[in-house]
């Protein structure tokens, strides 16, 4: 599948934003601290930037409002509806923290739960597609949810170090979720690598009863919308290296830094801020590579008709 930059940025940023909103919703950080107020703003900004970015790939974005109508059948529509619903408690929590230095548990937990539901809807857009077998597994939403939590708690660790408090708990939880997310992702990758395609050129053409089916000639010489959109293959050449890179930057480095924070304790606040920031930046870079691979490595059933 073609890894569109807008979708990669959208899923990464909104995942981070919803993850941070979840961490804030648990009341982990001191609502009176300036750092916590900034964290609330950043969560909303990340979510908003992600959603804006997702409209960039639309052919007719002026009609995007129509996407709220088909929540009965469409995960994309559900995601849109949930994003709006989630915004209400998140904005209210942010208002309380920023202007009244207050944390309201019911509101916070509702925002956290809705944030995770929204991430789940995003993941289900991909997981519901039977035509892309790599994505068509409950492991896909599991990875999305765990990565959102991993990124969110890493970010909250940074804000904790900035003065939001609860640095040890936050970095411990962040390290825990980063580990869990990568375990899920490695199981997901293992499934992908050992997958037996359910659709083949033989089933796609119905000619398997004669023998082995091989594309002789495409319908046209050049690429078309389908081969551009579904036939992306550049990544496969470097897939192993890129996967290792995303695992290192998105998993090993942040976990090492977060565990370092645990060992460091609250002794050196300035060092803690730097270490937490490094962990966050490394994780985000790793996640961008991971999301890129998520699309680039996925094979669409239509490629059975295009020899890919």
């Amino acid at each position: 599948m073609h890894p569109a930059l807008s979708i990669i940025v959208f899923t990464t940023l909104s995942g981070l934003g919803y993850g941070l909103a979840t961490a804030l919703g648990t009341g982990l950080l001191d609502p009176a601290a300036t750092a916590t107020k900034a964290a609330h703003l950043l969560a909303l900004a990340l979510i908003a930037a992600g959603l804006m970015s997702s409209t960039l790939h639309l052919g007719n974005p002026q009609r995007a409002w129509r996407a709220f109508s088909q929540w009965r059948s469409s995960w994309l529509s559900r995601e849109g509806v949930m994003a709006v619903l989630t915004f209400l408690p998140l904005a209210a929590s942010a208002f309380l923290a920023i202007f009244e230095s207050r944390y309201e548990p019911a509101l916070g937990l509702a925002g956290a739960a809705l944030s995770l539901v929204t991430v789940y809807c995003t993941a289900m857009i991909y997981a519901s597609l039977k035509s892309v077998q790599t994505w068509h597994t409950p492991l896909t939403p599991l990875c999305y949810l765990l990565f959102a939590l991993a990124g969110g708690f890493s970010l909250s660790t940074f804000f904790a170090a900035m003065g939001g408090g609860n640095l040890l708990l936050s970095s411990g939880l962040a390290a825990f979720f980063v580990c869990l997310a990568w375990i899920a992702k490695l199981v997901w990758r293992n499934r992908m690598n050992t997958l037996r395609p359910i659709s083949t050129p033989e089933t796609a053409t119905g000619l398997g009863f004669i023998g082995k089916v091989r594309l002789f000639e495409r319908p046209h010489i050049n690429d078309n919308y389908l081969t551009n959109e579904m036939g992306f293959r550049v990544a496969r050449k470097h897939a192993v290296k890129l996967a290792a890179l995303s695992f290192g930057l998105g998993g090993i480095v942040p976990v090492a830094l977060l565990l370092g924070l645990l060992a460091l304790g609250a002794a050196h606040p300035a060092v803690a801020v730097g270490v937490a920031l490094l962990a966050v930046l490394s994780h985000i870079t790793g996640m961008l590579v991971e999301r890129w691979l998520f699309f680039a490595e996925a094979r669409h059933a239509v490629m059975n008709y295009y020899g890919g």
């Binding site: 639309l58 039977k130 035509s131 892309v132 579904m230 669409h300 239509v302």
Partner: peptide, 23 residues
Amino acid sequence: CIGCGLCAWACPYGAREMDLAAG
């Protein structure tokens, strides 16, 4: 149609193509 392209992704047969001029 907002031209999100998700239906083309969902179709295993490649029966749908986005018109790049009309979106």
